[in-house]
């Protein structure tokens, strides 16, 4: 972590978030992601399979990312409440990882286990126009995998899926236990 030294002359309070490591050109990331999509595509047969594959890769990234962030930014305490965790993901986490906060966070009307994070144009979809024969493919399944792993790692087990709705909607469905636990905390 040599990149941390040198730059950090200002106090910890003053440094901006997400500056632990030099950023790379978006083109470098785009061509890497592009290869990952093509590689995965050649090893599966259907769009859902491809999305699963991308989600798995995203989970690998997410689980490591969580460690790195907590390790680096000592200031982050683990969130205990469900809503605070979701807000952390939507704002702080999203901003560090994707350069901006997610557009929206919503709760499903009819189900207390389900939340939505809505992002008009997720980073990974920036350059993608999906050909008609792959109508439903959404490469942000990769991002969904990242979010899922972060939630799991922070002890909020959930399943995160992507949907084409208002751009991209990430549907977060928490395990029953998480909701039950949260209700207990609330009532304390």
């Amino acid at each position: 972590m040599s990149s941390l030294t040198g730059k950090q002359k200002s106090s910890n309070l003053e440094k901006s978030l997400g500056k632990g490591k030099p950023e790379v050109n978006i083109a470098t990331f785009a061509v890497l992601f592009s290869e990952i999509v093509q590689y995965s595509q050649n090893r599966v047969h259907t769009v859902p399979e491809l999305q699963n594959k991308l989600s798995e890769l995203g989970q690998h990234v997410g689980s490591h990312l969580l460690d790195v962030l907590f390790l680096r930014e000592k200031g982050y305490k683990r969130e205990i409440k469900l809503l605070s965790m979701l807000i952390f993901i939507k704002s702080t986490f999203w901003k560090i990882v994707f350069g901006k906060e997610a557009d929206k966070l919503e709760q499903a009307n009819d189900d207390d286990r389900t939340y939505y994070i809505i992002e008009k144009e997720p980073l990974v979809n920036k350059f993608i126009s999906v050909p008609k024969d792959k109508g439903s493919l959404n490469c942000a399944a990769f991002t969904a995998g990242i979010v899922e792993a972060v939630l799991n790692g922070a002890n909020f087990p959930a399943k995160v899926t992507v949907h084409w709705h208002k751009g991209t909607t990430f549907m977060i469905k928490f395990d029953e236990d998480v909701i039950a636990r949260d209700k207990m905390i609330e009532s304390r």
């Binding site: 061509v31 992601f33 592009s34 999509v37 350059f127 126009s129 999906v130 050909p131 490469c139």
Partner: peptide
């Protein structure tokens, strides 16, 4: 460069099919 080169679903040595492009 923006809509073909960076699009994972476009192969560079094939005719461009991207609707976006």
């Amino acid at each position: 460069v923006e809509y073909v080169v960076k699009n994972p679903l476009c192969e560079l040595d094939q005719p461009v099919t991207s609707e976006l492009f």
